[in-house]
Write a protein that binds this DNA or RNA. Structure first.
Lengths: 108, 108
DNA sequence: AAGATCCGTTAGTCATTACTAACATTAGTT
DNA sequence: AACTAATGTTAGTAATGACTAACGGATCTT
């Protein structure tokens, strides 16, 4: 489905981003991905399912192991959405940059 | 801080994305942003706070109103992160595309 | 100065989600 | 066929997040 909402929801979780960043270096087995993480393999398995459902990773069975890799096609729509949003934001910002006289700015 | 984690967490919420997409068309007051949404102004106010803390929007006070606009600098780091991630994924994918002989693929 | 408007904040509730522990499943091994 | 290894799944719990309702604080109007 390559849903943007699902992709963003999946990326919002720190542990899942950690898994993806490990996978960006190359395919790994589920066990290798779980190593060193402060959570159980069970949690990792569930996170991988979320990433897979979001179209961000794909997996292939090899014996009793399961090798995961990043699915580039899942990231595509997200990148496209962010790019469109980015240019809209810049356009809106540029259009209003003149009239923002000198009112008090608030930024955290 | 322009934290990537905070930005992704903020973007993961549908209502917040809706607010951002309205703001991409131009600055709006908090009240105008709340109009038509199926949640109370209170909820909108809280969402705007999250977006502001994530560096995705900025606001300026004008009388009793508060005018929000998109903060392009907040989106920058997120875009950079996604781009780096994207190219890493492509490189990893290209490097492994040869040896994926004909094992059974699984995709949901 | 009193009231109205616009907005943020707090308290409390409900739904969602991330987690662990135990079990189920499949594929190799001896 | 029994055993082990690697992984997914389920049940139940704890933590997090989104929401409403009520309140508080400014600013403008009359």
């Amino acid at each position: 489905m390559t849903n943007i909402s699902a992709a963003l929801l999946a990326l919002a979780e720190p542990t899942r981003r950690q898994l993806l960043e490990r996978l960006a270096a190359g395919p790994r087995t589920a066990g290798a991905l779980a190593e060193g993480l402060p959570v159980t393999r069970s949690a990792v398995s569930q996170h991988l399912k979320v990433l897979k459902d979001a179209g961000l990773v794909a997996d292939r069975a090899e014996g009793t192991r399961r090798i995961y890799r990043i699915d580039p096609q899942g990231l595509g729509p997200l990148r496209a959405w962010l790019d469109r949003f980015w240019s809209d934001a810049l356009a809106s910002y540029a259009a209003e940059v003149d009239r923002t006289a000198d009112s008090k700015e608030t930024r955290k």
